[in-house]
Structure formats: C-alpha cells, structure tokens
Design a protein around this nucleic acid. Structure first.
Length: 411
DNA sequence: TGTCCACTGGAACGTACGGCTT
DNA sequence: AAGCCGTACGTTCCAGTGGACA
C-alpha cells in the first residue's frame, strides 16, 4: 500500500517540482507584458496614425516592416487591445481582426475568416469566393463601426492566388456606407513592396513604419523584465541573460530567439536538477533548439520528400563530389521501388528539392557544367544520423535505413 | 564560334476531395 | 443526385540557358 500511495503522488510531485520557474509563460513570445521596452517610439507613431478611428474617421492603411522577433506582431496586438478598450470607454464601436497570412494564405480563406469573425457561418470550402466577400461586407456594413484588419506576414500572399485580396480590401471602403475598414500589413521582407501592384502599394503603404532590430543591450532589458516574472529569484547566474542577449543579437536581434533561449536554458537546468542556471546551460539550450527545429522540420515532411532526402544522404555518404538532380532522381526511384511507393516525375522532384532548400534542410544551387548541361548542385545541411532516426519512426520507410550505396559505383 | 547537354522553371491541365446549392 | 467551387498535389509539355568542348 505504501507503494500505491507513492505512485499516486508521482504526477503531483513532478508538477510541483518546478523549482526554477514561477511563471514559465512569461518567457513565451506569445505572452504580452504590460510594457514593451524599446518600442515606445513605434507605439506612439502607430497610435497617432490609427487614432482617427476613435473619432469615427478612417485611419490610413499602414505597412509595418521589420525582421522576425522585432516586436511587430506583439506591438500591433497590444495597440489593438488598447484601441478596442478606449473605443468601448468612449462608446465608439471598434473591431480589430488579426490574421496570419502564412496560415490564411488564399483570398477565400481570408474572407472566410473575416466573415466568421463577424459571426457569419462560412464553410472552409464550398462557396464561391464572391459570395463570401458579400457575406463579410454586408455583415460588417450593418452598423456604423471602425474595423482594423491586421494582415501579418502579408508578404506570403504576393505571387500566390491570394494577392488580389489585398487590392480588394484596400478598395472595400468605396462599397461600404456605414463601416470603415483600415488595414495594417506586417512584412518581414523589405523587398515585398517591389512585387506589389502600384495601385495597391499607394493605398496600402500610405504610412510606413519600420521596426529596427534590437541590439544586445535592449534584448538584455527585455529578458530582465521577463525573467523577473518567470523565474524564482536568484536562480539565474549573472552572465546568463547577457549571454542569451548576445547570442540572439548575433542573429539580427531576434527577441523571440532570446526568449526561447532563456526558457530552454531554464528547462535544461531544471532537468539536471540543479538550482542555478549557468552559461553552460545556455550553450546546451542553443544546441538543443537548433537540433529540435530541424528534426521537427524533417519529421513533418511528406513521405516523398523524406525518401528524396534520404537519397541525397546516401549519395553524400558515398562521397559523391557533386550531387545533381539527375543522380538524386536515380537513387530516389530505386528507393521508391524497394518500398513500393509511387515514383514522382523528375519535374516534381525538382520542385521538392527547391522546397527542401527553402526549409534549410538542403542547399541547392543552379550550376552550369557547360558541355554536360545545367543542373542543381545539392548539399545536405543537416546530420545524416538525424535523418535516419526520423526514417525509423516511419513504418513504411524503416527498411530503407539499412540500405547503403557501394563506395564507388562502376558504370 | 557555334553546338548541345541536362537540366530549369513557367504554364496549363488532370484528379481527388470536401462541401455547398438546387 | 448532379453540378459547382476552392484547394492540394501531380503530370505533361516545352521554351530557355550557361558554359565546356570541338
């Protein structure tokens, strides 16, 4: 019976055994603190642009630029909260909608999400797009109100079928008699403007706001503010936060990265069962984050891409000097046959290679070998051992992990 | 100087699927 | 039940090309 009671408490004891953290959520980038250090200027600038909404006028559309982790999203969300709150106090009806265009990446989906936000029941597919557009427009126009739409990662829309949604939204006010719509576009990509239609551009980027990257000192302030909320007092060695800040500053001042680093450092120390987080934990955390993100990227790949990736690994291990599309395709075909998987065309594989390249798992470069044609030169960017581990997790691909190519191939 | 390789990458089209409308 | 619609994922077709080699 002693045995039973001790097991009963096992989760409880594990749950309460978080000696370092008092509120881990404060270190997540989704957490919105009461103050946003080193962004006062941007907040004031944006607030002065959208304040007309509180007087019943239409604010200019805004385009926000800045690298990842510079606080664009969090500042925008913070302003929305404040705007809605002030609106309520003044009796001005204001709605704000936040959409991430990486997820919501077509015209249909954006309109469907907007319509849903205003209480319309739109299926995720099935309706013609203009019907969804009217559902949204009519619902919104039923009363006098200001609407602020935030399109995060708006650069993900250009070039795709979704890109005339930007045009349609910037024009919607001329079709509305009661409501007023303004748009805040957020982009990581500074070159984004070059790809926009000039009519859309003049309307959308009536006001531009640029978010500079944080420097190491600023990151340190942010981390200190969050650490105070997240950690039990005195568990951080004095150099831990400066180190996290320095590492993140090296990567274009990414606050998200800095926060992740500090959080994972804490977790690593906790798992070790020690009471002080040290620089060594930060280094371990840095490696762990890197490893985890690439492994996760590989794990979520479609089966075909996994086989393709493995074909590249085999060629690399064989010591092939220059891996080309044609060679990879040859091995890929053989691997597919051995596990009776459909063989895709070389054209498709060429696209999959480019996808793996943008994910950073492979690197491919188009090279010309003169008399011997033009092709992609391919290199693996992650550890082969990691790729094998992932393959073993996939029942159908497990038997591939035994395959090795002969060191030299005689043809 | 021209040829010609081994692809690249754009474009149109096909198929399957979930889901609405009538 | 038949006919649309939007989306994902592929295929088919093909013009275009950088540069080693004859």
């Amino acid at each position: 019976m002693d045995f039973k009671t001790s097991l009963n408490n096992i989760f409880e004891s594990l749950l309460t055994k978080e000696p370092l953290f008092k509120n881990k959520d404060a270190l997540r980038h989704t957490y919105t603190p009461d103050e946003l250090p080193h962004r006062e200027r941007e907040i004031r600038q944006l607030a002065s642009i959208i304040v007309p909404a509180l007087k019943g006028q239409t604010p200019s559309n805004i385009l926000i630029y800045g690298k990842s982790g510079t606080g664009k999203t969090i500042v925008s969300k913070f302003l929305c909260q404040e705007l809605e709150k002030t609106g309520r106090n003044l009796g001005m009806p204001i709605s704000t909608v936040y959409l991430n265009c990486e997820v919501t990446d077509t015209q249909y989906r954006i309109l469907a999400n907007l319509a849903k936000h205003f209480g319309q029941n739109v299926p995720f597919t099935g309706w013609p797009t203009d019907k969804v557009y009217h559902a949204f427009k009519d619902e919104v126009d039923r009363k006098k109100q200001s609407i602020l739409i935030i399109l995060d990662e708006i650069d993900k829309l250009v070039g795709k079928k979704g890109d005339n949604i930007i045009y349609n939204l910037t024009r919607i006010n001329s079709e509305l008699s009661n409501a007023k719509v303004s748009i805040i576009g957020i982009s990581n990509d500074l070159k984004f403007k070059d790809f926009l239609d000039s009519r859309v551009l003049s309307s959308l980027s009536a006001e531009d706001v640029v978010f500079r990257p944080y420097n190491a000192k600023e990151l340190e302030d942010i981390l200190n503010q969050r650490a105070e909320l997240a950690f039990v007092e005195g568990v951080c060695d004095e150099y831990v936060i400066p180190l996290c800040a320095a590492l993140a500053a090296r990567e274009h001042g990414d606050a998200r990265k800095a926060l992740d680093l500090l959080r994972v450092s804490g977790e690593v120390a906790e798992r070790e069962g020690v009471e002080l987080i040290t620089e060594e934990h930060v280094r371990l955390a840095n490696e762990k984050i890197e490893r985890d993100t690439t492994m996760e990227a590989i794990r979520t790949l479609p089966t075909q891409s996994k086989v393709l990736l493995y074909a590249t690994v085999l060629l690399e291990e064989r010591g092939t000097k220059m891996i080309t599309t044609g060679e990879v395709y040859d091995i890929y075909k053989r691997l597919c046959k051995s596990v009776s998987l459909d063989v895709l065309t070389q054209r498709r594989i060429s696209d999959l290679i480019s996808e793996l390249d943008t994910l950073g798992i492979l690197s491919s470069k188009v090279v010309s070998k003169g008399r011997y044609g033009r092709t992609k030169e391919i290199r693996i960017e992650v550890l082969p051992a990691g790729i094998r581990t992932v393959l073993t997790e996939d029942m159908r691909l497990r038997k591939l992990t035994d395959i090795r190519l002969p060191q030299t191939q005689l043809l």
